[in-house]
């Protein structure tokens, strides 16, 4: 899988608002589970309704918006949560209609099932 981390300037999938162009790249595990590819991403502080998974032109885009914090960290400030953003180039083998995802304890798991072996297309040649 090719990873296209950075939103490009004229990329349609890039985050729109200029103030929000600061994003975090979530760490991921990606592995082949035989019948599917599995993408596991750490997305702490994100509610289920603020996750946007999108596949367009074989590019998987993960966007997620963390919820607001509880208190102002005025004693120790080690992390800041910006919106999460990451893109992956998918191969032709993913069945894009059967993709499903689940969120648990701040970890998103996306299942990308592979298509059944594609039959070679036979083209009839008509002889006039």
């Amino acid at each position: 899988m090719k990873n296209t981390n950075l939103p490009k300037k004229y990329d349609q999938n890039a985050v729109e608002a200029r103030e929000q162009t600061r994003t975090l790249t979530p760490p991921v595990d990606i592995f082949d589970a035989g019948e599917a590819l599995v993408v596991v991403a750490d997305l702490p502080g994100v509610d289920q309704e603020h996750i946007d998974i999108n596949i367009e032109k074989n590019v998987l885009t993960l966007k997620a918006e963390p919820s607001t914090r509880v208190s102002e960290p005025n004693l120790l400030h080690e992390f800041v949560l910006y919106p999460f953003y990451r893109q992956f180039q998918l191969g032709e083998t993913v069945d894009q209609d059967k993709v499903r995802a689940e969120l648990r304890y701040g970890v998103l798991t996306v299942y990308l099932p592979k298509v059944a072996e594609k039959q070679p297309k036979k083209i009839e040649v008509k002889v006039a």
């Binding site: 702490p44 502080g45 102002e72 960290p73 120790l76 080690e78 304890y105 970890v107």
Partner: peptide
């Protein structure tokens, strides 16, 4: 990683730890 904040009555510790066994 942790963020620690306080107000008049409480100290709040936020711990960034996704995917723990509860």
């Amino acid at each position: 990683l942790m963020n620690v904040g306080e107000d008049k009555d409480n100290v709040y510790v936020e711990v960034l730890a996704p995917g723990l066994n509860p």
